[in-house]
Amino acid sequence: MPLLPIALSVFRESVRDKVFYNLLLFAVILVAASLLVGQTTAGQDVKIIKDLGLAATSLFGIFIAVFVGINLVWKEVERRSVYNVLSKPVRRPALVVGKYLGLSLTLLVNVSVMALALYAVLAYMNQGFPESVRQAWDAPALDPALLIAFVLILAQLLMMTAVALFFSTFSSPMLSAVFTFGLYVAGHFNADLKNFETIVSLRPVVWVARALYYVLPNLASLDVKSQVVHGQPVAAGYVSLSLLYAAVYIVMLLGAASLIFARRDLK
């Protein structure tokens, strides 16, 4: 299967297109914030930096997932480089999945470096406080539970990459970006759709809302930033189930994207 060379090619393209420059900006934001926060808040410094670090990881990641993802297949077709690839022994679904894996690798590296950077800043801040202050925090500065939040952020990003790639197989980048960002926003308020009957009594509307609840990505279930920052436990079972949900959602989207792309005339 040519998945690996295709994935590595996408990763190399990300590197050469300077996608990882966002890490520099991330580091600057973290360091600047840690200096600033130390002078304006009392005792909340670590919590704010954790919040900021996780939010920035999510935000930077979603921009990469969407803006690289919407071009993954579209650019190949539009610039006709796909002709050269598909005249080799490469099945169309392999191209779709390989491209997805390549961007996923980029996001994995991006999120990992951001996690390391956040831990580095937190370790530096941790040194500046006496033990008595540290005892009063909801969670330790170098809380391993932060990793759970990072893993679930990565899962969210991989879901949104699959969404962007799905649209990229048949739509222009502009429309794909609109659709993907729309789903990203809707995905955070998905839980409201489940309980729509408490607001509206009209059955067809409730059915539509329930259908949308199952179709739209349930990103809220993958968002544990707040719990982690406040030191609340996140059950292992919940994390496993959320990851399983993300995996199923991704596989279904990649399947649909592959089906659409496999039947398309590449004019």
Binding site: R12, E13, R80, S81, N84, K88, P89, V90
Partner: peptide, 18 residues
């Protein structure tokens, strides 16, 4: 599998810039 045994040059070929 037949594509292992053929070569193809498209009209006005385009490749990856990077």
């Amino acid at each position: 599998e037949v594509r292992r045994r053929i070569g193809y040059l498209p009209e006005n070929p385009y490749f990856y810039d990077h």
